Every structure is written in structure tokens, then in C-alpha cells.
Computed example of a mutant assay.
Amino acid sequence: MTSKLVVLVSGSGSNLQALIDACRDPGYGAEVAAVGADRDGTFGLERAEDAGIPTFVRKVRDFPDRDAWDAALTETVASYEPDIVVSAGFLKLCGPRFLEAFPGRYINTHNSLLPAFPGMNGPGEALAAGVKLAGATLFICDSGVDTGPIIAQSAVPVEDDDTVETLTERIKEAERAQLVDSVGRMVRDGWTVEGRRVRLG
């Protein structure tokens, strides 16, 4: 049986495109059922529409408060009955209602080897710290900022002449491959969450 993904984006949607491409293979085991965004006119929404995938937009400013926005987002995502919800560059923290609706099923990718360098500037902080390995982390979202149980990590060497831009781009390549591989394994083989540990298969 094919698993359903709902993917949330805020920008260009390169991770979304990687998932759309992977889902074209029937053996992958998943389909992107819908793509949501927190703003109009993103390239991620265009990618979804070009692929014939339903889209929706839920802007925070259209609601009286964050709780109302969270409730609306939760209801919309739930209507597609997703097996996994993927944050693919979605730049909003979802609230408790959303997390409770999709326990252990809302995943996010981050451009550092967590728990090092959470937040918005992982590659820049990695360079500033002088680390020799940066990378990408896929994790299950909880109520913190980049603090949830880790599903997978990919290391990316930091080169002596790296800039934030060059390091970020190499991390993005590793991030896309890791996301596609891990989601495929999750939908085909299942997963369990035991405290801080996530086991695939």
C-alpha cells in the first residue's frame, strides 16, 4: 500500500522536488498527497502544481492568533490523512495541537549535525566554530527548536576554502539524498520511537 506524504514548504522546495521525483517510482512506496505553505507565490507551490499535486496556503496573519493558525493548519493537513508530514524548509514552528495530531510522524531536516548548531544559521555557525565536519540531520519534530529524536544524519567535510554559501550547497545535496532515502525506508519498513532513539525497520 502506498503511504501518503503531506509536505510543508516556505521557499524554493528543492527537498520537495526530490521527494516528488522519488515518488514517481512505484517501488518507492509513497506519494505526495498535498503540499502546503505559509505564504503565497513560493516556488515550492509551483513545483507541486506542475506535478499535479493539490496545494494549500495557511498564512499566520490570516488568523487572530497562532493557536487559531495552528488549528487551521492541523485540520487541513489531517484532511489528507498523511502517514508522514514532512517539513521541507517550512519556516514556522507548529504548535501543540499540530504535534499531538501527528505524533512521531512530523519530520524535519536541518543543515547541521544536531544537537550542534540548531536554529537558522547552522553552516555559518559551523564555519565560525572551526569544525571539520558539518552535515544534515533528519529528525522527528517536538516542541523545541531542532531538538527532536534523530532519524538520520549525514556528515559533510568542511573544506579550508569553504564559504557559508559553498558549505550550505554541499549540505543541501546530502540533505536531499538523506531525506529521500530515510522517508523511503520509513514508509516501506516502518519505524519506532523509543525515547530519544528512532529505529527504522
Rank of each mutant, 00 (worst) to 15 (best):
G13A: 04
A152I: 08
T74M: 10
W191P: 11
P115A: 11
D62P: 06
E125H: 07
R185P: 06
P118V: 05
G144P: 03
V158Y: 07
V193W: 11
V145E: 10
V32L: 06
V158N: 01
D142V: 01
A177M: 12
I151P: 07
V183N: 00
K172E: 06
G119R: 05
Y28A: 15
F43T: 07
D38K: 01
V193H: 14
E169Q: 14
L91H: 03
V86M: 11
L167D: 00
I53K: 00
V35K: 03
V164K: 05
L99P: 07
I171T: 01
L16C: 07
A48S: 05
T2L: 06
F98T: 13
I53A: 04
D62I: 08
V77E: 05
R66L: 14
G135R: 03
D65M: 12
Y28S: 12
S12V: 09
N121G: 03
P96T: 14
E75Y: 09
E173P: 02
D25K: 11
T137P: 03
G29K: 07
W69Q: 14
V60L: 15
I107D: 02
G41V: 03
R47I: 05
L5G: 09
E169D: 13
G41Q: 07
E175L: 01
Q178Y: 01
G104K: 15
A18Q: 00
L91E: 01
G119F: 04
E49W: 02
D146L: 08
F90C: 05
C141A: 15
A22K: 06
R61F: 11
A155F: 03
S14Q: 07
P103H: 12
R24L: 10
A88Q: 02
T55Q: 06
L167M: 05
A152E: 14
R58I: 15
E75V: 00
G184Y: 04
F139K: 09
S10G: 00
P96D: 13
M120Y: 05
G144T: 03
F102I: 08
T55E: 02
R185N: 09
Y28K: 11
V32S: 05
L73E: 04
A78R: 13
Q17D: 06
G201D: 12
V7C: 03
G104Y: 12
G201F: 13
S182W: 10
G89E: 01
I20T: 10
G135Q: 00
G44K: 02
L8C: 03
V77K: 01
F117L: 09
D181C: 00
R196Q: 09
A68I: 13
Q17T: 15
P54S: 07
I53G: 03
A78G: 11
V145D: 04
L19K: 11
G95K: 09
T42I: 06
D62H: 08
C94P: 08
V77F: 10
A71S: 14
G148C: 10
G11D: 02
D83I: 13
P54Q: 09
V158Q: 05
R97T: 15
G122L: 01
A116K: 13
G36Y: 02
D50Q: 15
E194F: 02
I151E: 11
S87K: 12
V77C: 04
D62T: 08
T2E: 00
A129W: 09
A51E: 10
